[in-house]
Simulated assay, not measured.
Amino acid sequence: MTVDPAPISGRQPRAVRTALAVLEEVVAAGPGVTAKEISTALRLPPATTYRVLNLLVGEEYLVRLPDLRGFALGRRAARLSPVAVPRLPTAARTVVDHLRGRVRWGVHLAIFDGARLQVLDPDPDHPPSDADLLARLPQASALGRLLLAEQPDWRALVRDLRPVTDRTVTDPDALDAVLDAVRRDGLATQTGQLRPDRGCLAVPVRSPADGALVAGLALSGPATRVADPDPELVTLLREHATTLGPLLG
Rank of each mutant, 00 (worst) to 15 (best):
R136E: 10
V169Y: 01
R100M: 01
P89E: 02
L109D: 01
L80G: 06
G101R: 08
P196A: 13
T94L: 11
Q190I: 06
K36F: 11
P31C: 03
R145M: 10
L80K: 01
Q118Y: 13
L44A: 01
Q151M: 13
V205M: 03
R11T: 13
L73A: 00
L175Y: 01
T90C: 06
L143Q: 09
L247V: 04
V22D: 00
I8S: 15
D173Y: 10
L20D: 08
W105M: 12
F71Y: 15
E37N: 11
L247F: 06
D123L: 10
D113R: 14
F71R: 09
G101M: 04
G199M: 05
V26M: 07
P13M: 05
L62W: 03
E239Y: 11
A149N: 05
A115E: 13
P89F: 04
F112M: 03
V52W: 06
T18C: 04
V27I: 12
F71W: 15
V205E: 06
G58Q: 03
L134A: 15
V226W: 09
S39N: 00
R87Q: 13
A174E: 14
R198G: 09
E24Q: 14
R79L: 12
R69W: 09
L157I: 07
L244P: 01
D180R: 13
A21F: 07
L143F: 11
L73Q: 03
D171R: 07
I8L: 15
A19L: 12
L175V: 03
R183Y: 05
V169H: 05
L53Q: 04
T242A: 13
D210F: 03
S81N: 10
L161E: 09
T90E: 14
D176W: 06
G186N: 00
V234R: 01
G245L: 04
R17L: 13
T165N: 12
R64D: 09
A29I: 00
L147P: 03
Q193A: 13
D97F: 05
G10H: 08
P222N: 10
V83H: 09
R225P: 01
I8A: 15
L236N: 07
L56E: 04
L55T: 13
P89H: 01
G186P: 02
G144Y: 00
L53K: 00
A91Q: 14
P222A: 13
Y61W: 15
L236M: 14
R155Y: 05
A115F: 09
I38Q: 01
L147E: 06
R104F: 12
L194D: 05
L68N: 14
G70M: 03
V214R: 15
L161Y: 10
R14T: 12
P138R: 02
I8T: 15
E25N: 12
S129G: 15
Q193D: 11
R14V: 12
A115Y: 11
R43P: 04
V164D: 08
P208I: 07
R155P: 05
L68P: 06
A77W: 06
A142G: 08
A202W: 03
I8W: 15
F112V: 04
Y50A: 10
T235I: 02
G32K: 04
A35H: 02
P46Q: 07
E239C: 11
V119C: 12
R195Q: 11
A72K: 02
P127W: 02
L148K: 01
